[in-house]
């Protein structure tokens, strides 16, 4: 199995905007003292192991970021910072907002959501 083709053009560091957002959120929350980076690394590592157990070897692309987000959600739940039911409700509110917003207009949550 070939890992890479040498000399191919360098891809951008984040292939999707949400990868960058999840990354920044994780760094920022750590810098604000909510957890240390080694605590994060341990959590993330455990998530990678768990994901590998469920779906086999990880390719370091979309699966890597899925594990990253899963680890972040788990950590924030554990620390009482983001309750899963509230996160789910907000996710649905964002989904509804996208579906209700005309194409090209900024998407915003309604007050009270």
């Amino acid at each position: 199995m070939t890992i890479c083709t040498p000399d191919r053009p360098e891809p951008p560091p984040f292939s999707e905007p949400w990868h960058a957002q999840a990354f920044a959120l994780t760094v920022h929350l750590s810098e604000r003292g909510n957890y240390t980076w080694p605590e994060w690394a341990e959590r993330f590592s455990a998530e990678l192991v768990a994901l590998r157990g469920r779906q086999g070897p990880l390719d370091g692309g979309a699966d890597y970021w899925a594990a990253w987000l899963g680890a972040l959600e788990g950590l924030l739940t554990e620390r009482g910072m983001a309750e899963p039911a509230v996160v789910e409700r907000l996710k649905e509110a964002w989904e509804a907002a996208y579906l209700a917003t005309p194409h090209g207009a900024p998407v915003q949550l309604k007050a009270g959501q």
Binding site: P17, W18, W94
Partner: peptide
Amino acid sequence: EPALRVKALETLL
């Protein structure tokens, strides 16, 4: 879907 989950976290935090 994961992007919406990130947005939800950002909103809440």
